[in-house]
Simulated assay, not measured.
Amino acid sequence: MSKPVPEGHYAQLANGHRIHYLDQGQGPVVVFLHGSGNGGCGYSNFKGNIAPLVEAGYRVLVPDLIGFGYSAKPTDVEYHLDLFVQCVVQMLDALGIDRATLVGNSLGGAVALGCALAHPDRIDRMVLMAPGGLNDLPDYLAMPGMQKMFALYGAGTPPSKEQLKDFFISAFVVNPAAVTADLVNERFELAKTQCPQAIQTLKVPNMVARLGEIQQPTLTLWGLNEQMMPDSGILRLGKGLPNGRMVLVPNCGHWVMIEHRDLFNRMVLDFLEHG
C-alpha cells in the first residue's frame, strides 16, 4: 500500500524517540518546521518550497514533529514546547549538524523561537510564518480558525475529506484553489494516524517577554487574513525581535508558503543570501 506522503529517513534521538525527516541538497542547512492541525506533517506544509532552496545550494531538512506524520507518537509524554525543541536539536545532533536556519509556520514557528532561546549557538537565522508563542491561550481560543480546529479534534472520530477541505479553506487560506485535492488526501490519511495526545496536551508558553534575547536575523511573513493567530502577534514580534524584519502579505491566510508560494520562496532566498 502506497504511503500518503514520501518517506525519507529516520533519526534515533538521545531521548529515545524517533523522528522522520526528508533530506535534500547540499550546503548550509535549512530546517522546515510545520504547524499542527489535522494531518500536519513537513511534506504537506512545504513541498512547494524545498526545490528552490536545494537548487540555490542549500541542504533542506523537513522533519515531522514528534506526534505527527511518520515520527514517533508516544502516549506517555505531554507535548510541551520543550519536547518539540529537544527533539529538533537532538535531530541535528544525530545528523552531526552544528548550526542551521529554521523556517517555522504556526507551531513550527514557536518551536523555532524556542530553539533560538534554549540553544542560540545552534541557530543561524529564522524565517517565521505567523508563529505561536506570542499570546496566552484565551487569545488563541478566540480565533475562528482555532475554534474550528478544536471542534474537529474533539469530534471523537477522524474528520471526513470534505470536513477537512472545508476547514482548510475557511481557516487557512483566502484562495480556495490553494487547497488542492492532493493536499486534502495527504492530510486525510495522516490524520487517521495522528496522536490525539499531541493536541490534547499541547502547551506553548507566551515567549513575548523573552523576544529581546533573540539576536538571530529573523524574517517574518504574516498573512493579513489570518484566522488562526491573533493580529496582536504582529507588533509583539515586530517590536520584540532586535534583528527582525516583518512582511505583511495581503490576500493571505495562515499558509503564506502555500498560498503565495513564489513570493515566499523569493523572499526566503533573498533573506538567506542578504539578511
Rank of each mutant, 00 (worst) to 15 (best):
G154K: 10
L137P: 11
T101K: 04
F264H: 11
E162M: 03
V85H: 05
Y70F: 15
V62Q: 07
R18Y: 02
T218N: 03
S106I: 00
T218E: 02
P158T: 02
E162W: 00
N15T: 08
A191R: 06
V54C: 09
A118I: 00
G275T: 00
R266A: 11
Q216K: 12
G133Y: 03
N185Q: 13
K165M: 12
M126V: 12
P176Q: 07
V249P: 12
L65H: 15
L211R: 02
A142T: 01
R266K: 14
L92I: 11
A112G: 10
C195V: 09
D121K: 02
A94K: 10
D124F: 00
H20L: 06
E162T: 14
A178P: 00
G240C: 10
R122S: 04
D270S: 10
R59Y: 14
L107F: 09
P28T: 01
H254N: 11
L102T: 10
R18A: 13
L202N: 02
L134Y: 04
G244D: 04
K192V: 08
G27L: 08
M207G: 03
Y70T: 08
G69I: 13
G96I: 14
Y79W: 07
L137R: 11
T101N: 06
P131S: 06
L53C: 08
D166W: 00
H34N: 12
R261M: 13
F271I: 04
K47F: 14
M146W: 00
Q215F: 05
C87A: 10
A177Y: 00
V111S: 02
M257N: 14
L224T: 14
D82I: 06
P28H: 01
L117T: 09
V88T: 09
L134S: 03
K47A: 14
M246Y: 04
P176S: 04
G8K: 15
L33H: 04
D98L: 12
G27N: 08
I199N: 11
V184E: 01
R266H: 12
I214W: 02
P120L: 08
I258V: 15
M143G: 02
M229R: 01
L183P: 00
R261H: 07
A142E: 10
I214K: 06
F46M: 09
S36V: 04
R59V: 03
E213F: 06
L102Q: 06
Y43Q: 08
K73P: 00
K203C: 13
A178W: 01
Y70W: 13
L211Y: 06
V29C: 03
M246L: 15
C195D: 12
F168T: 05
L107W: 08
G8W: 15
G8T: 10
Q200V: 14
L190R: 07
G37D: 09
A14Y: 05
V30C: 07
A177R: 12
F150A: 01
P120T: 01
D166F: 00
L221T: 07
H9E: 14
F150Y: 13
L61N: 07
C195F: 01
P74G: 10
S106H: 10
R236C: 06
L241N: 01
A72R: 01
